[in-house]
Design a protein around this nucleic acid. Structure first.
Lengths: 155, 155
DNA sequence: AAAATAATGGTCAAGATTAGTCAAAAGAGC
DNA sequence: GCTCTTTTGACTAATCTTGACCATTATTTT
């Protein structure tokens, strides 16, 4: 696997130092230095790979003694997390974000691989393709929220 | 049959490097270079020779560190049942009929109870509600057919 | 206190680096 | 010749990288 981007590598590193802990705190400039990238790349990695859809909450503080804290959370267990997830979905969600959520559910052992695959096809662009892409995203949101509620009340 | 096209040769090469592994990851430009063809020919080879009907799943990512991943999957035996169901569905299906089909799948032990419940959620009037009921039935058909196609193989 | 300075992280857009699409041109088999 | 498949390339889309500029918080100076 020679063709990983530096973002992939930084993502892996952050997940490694996160390990089994519930959270990890980093200094942006330190990580940027360590991997010889500009500091804003750390923001990019976090914004694309440590979203609530992926099962992470991120908090930060600027100024002296500033930090970025990454916290791993369970999507369905915590009512607050589930609520913020549903809020993030709103009434419209893109395919990619929906896929991230399903993958997270699988990684948290909330659903099986096959259940996840079935959910994915129902949320795919291909299945939902309709003239208007705005309506497509709205449909996807309704289906996904229905899935989540179904899973919530079952477990 | 005697004159192999370059596409045939690339196909054979990809299958060779796939070997016994479950999947292989390539860089499009690399393969194109190696065989001295334009990059889009790799797409052509994949689209014509690594389809799900042939037992392959393909995933890709663009941008830096991009790749094309080819995965081999096992096709299942319930294909006949699934084929006839897909035929019966056509391009439009009402909620009641869709529910019947899901129940049949459950009774035939093609899916579990929980998988069926998830499918029902995605096929429900509530989730799919859209102004036009004709479009709703078409959507439902696409989703249901996608489900059935997904059930053709196991990964 | 208030103001200045230092020390953090955030945003955004341009440019670079991949892969995807589509249709015209070329070739192969009948 | 006619049709189907293959080959090519111009154009498009997605993702990653970089840097200039902005915002917030802590510390020092006045």
């Amino acid at each position: 696997m020679e063709n990983k981007s530096i973002s992939d590598i930084i993502e892996a590193y952050l997940k490694e130092i996160l390990g089994d802990s519930a959270q990890v705190e980093i200094r942006r400039s330190e990580i940027a230095n360590q991997f010889d990238v500009v500091p804003s790349q750390i923001n990019y990695v976090i914004k694309t790979r440590f979203t609530i859809q992926n099962g992470y909450l991120v908090k930060s503080k600027r100024g002296g003694g500033g930090y970025i804290r990454i916290e791993r959370v369970n999507l369905l267990d915590d009512v607050n997390v589930l609520n913020s997830l549903i809020q993030a979905i709103g009434d419209s969600v893109r395919e990619r974000d929906a896929f991230d959520i399903v993958r997270t559910l699988y990684e948290e052992d909330v659903i099986t691989r096959r259940e996840g695959d079935l959910m994915l096809v129902a949320l795919s662009k291909q299945a939902l393709a309709v003239n208007d892409s705005k309506i497509e995203d709205q449909l996807r949101a309704r289906i996904l929220v229905s899935f989540l509620n179904r899973l919530r009340y079952e477990s």
